[in-house]
């Protein structure tokens, strides 16, 4: 296992006011896998991701990267946030944003420039490298954030609902983009989303979470052929079947409180 989540739990507050955001979570990710985590809104996905990236210390259990417990953000991990507008630095150009995490890596100047240009090229923004993030559309800004993660050359890339705030057309393009760069950069990806179609389309495995306090409800393999295609893949009966299965898994508990 490259990344292992072991009985992870996170509680905010103490005593009677305590909120159990994450109950007891265990699953693993092997090197090279594309794993999607889906769950109902407010099920502690972001908390989980923050614990995995070392930004937040779990209350119980642990997260281990190559058998080493994570206590702070690891060098070999990158994170793409949902709010690209707040994660990119508006005073730096696209080049500056992508280069910023590389500055402490002690690379030669030309090596650093090569990594930055290659990453910006990989997300299709060659002509925009000297532009500022706020001069670009939302979808393009998220591409910049992806380029920043790529240039950092992580072993594992975490993505927190990265395409939740772009329009449907752009979303499809970005999904295909991430599948392409994953092969090119040879990364393991953990992708958090609340979009069921997206999770089925992208992943090798899906981890379905329960509502808060979060537990793993089901882990299922996605055996759809690769490379995936927005039209052909989504036409397959297996796609429809998987999609319906995950949908029922997520929606079922809510049916009790909301009879139709």
């Amino acid at each position: 296992m490259l990344l292992e989540i072991n009985h992870l739990g996170k509680t905010y507050g103490e005593g009677a006011d305590a909120t159990h955001a994450v109950g007891d979570l265990s699953f693993g990710i092997s090197a090279g896998e594309f794993v999607c985590v889906v769950g109902p809104s407010g099920c502690g996905k972001t908390t989980l991701l923050k614990c995995m990236s070392g930004l937040l210390r779990p209350s119980t259990g642990k997260v281990a990267l190559r058998d080493e417990t994570i206590s702070g953000p690891p060098e070999t991990m990158a994170l793409v946030f949902q709010e690209y507008g707040r994660s990119l630095l508006p005073w730096l150009s696209v080049r500056g944003n992508v280069a910023l995490p590389l500055r402490h890596k002690k690379l030669r100047k030309d090596e650093q420039a090569r990594l930055v240009e290659e990453a910006v090229g990989a997300v299709g923004l060659d002509g925009f490298i000297e532009r500022y993030p706020w001069e670009l559309s939302g979808g393009m800004q998220q591409r910049v954030a992806i380029a920043r993660a790529l240039a950092y050359q992580p072993e594992i890339l975490l993505m927190d609902e990265p395409f939740a705030s772009v329009d449907a057309q752009t979303r499809g393009d970005l999904e295909d983009l991430i599948l392409q760069v994953r092969d090119r950069y040879d990364m393991t990806i953990l992708f958090v989303t609340h979009d069921i179609d997206e999770s089925v389309y992208l992943s090798d495995r899906i981890v379905v979470l329960s509502p808060s306090p979060t537990e793993v409800k089901e882990i299922l393999d996605v055996d759809l052929p690769r490379p995936r295609d927005q039209v052909a893949t989504k036409e397959l009966p297996e796609f429809a079947h998987l999609r319906a299965h995950v949908y029922r898994q997520i929606k079922r508990p809510q049916a009790h409180g909301n009879p139709e």
Binding site: L55, P73, E75, F81, R86, S87, L89
Partner: peptide, 10 residues
């Protein structure tokens, strides 16, 4: 989010 970004990227 900006602070988290700088932390994650070291």
């Amino acid at each position: 989010t900006m602070n988290d970004t700088t932390k994650v990227y070291g």
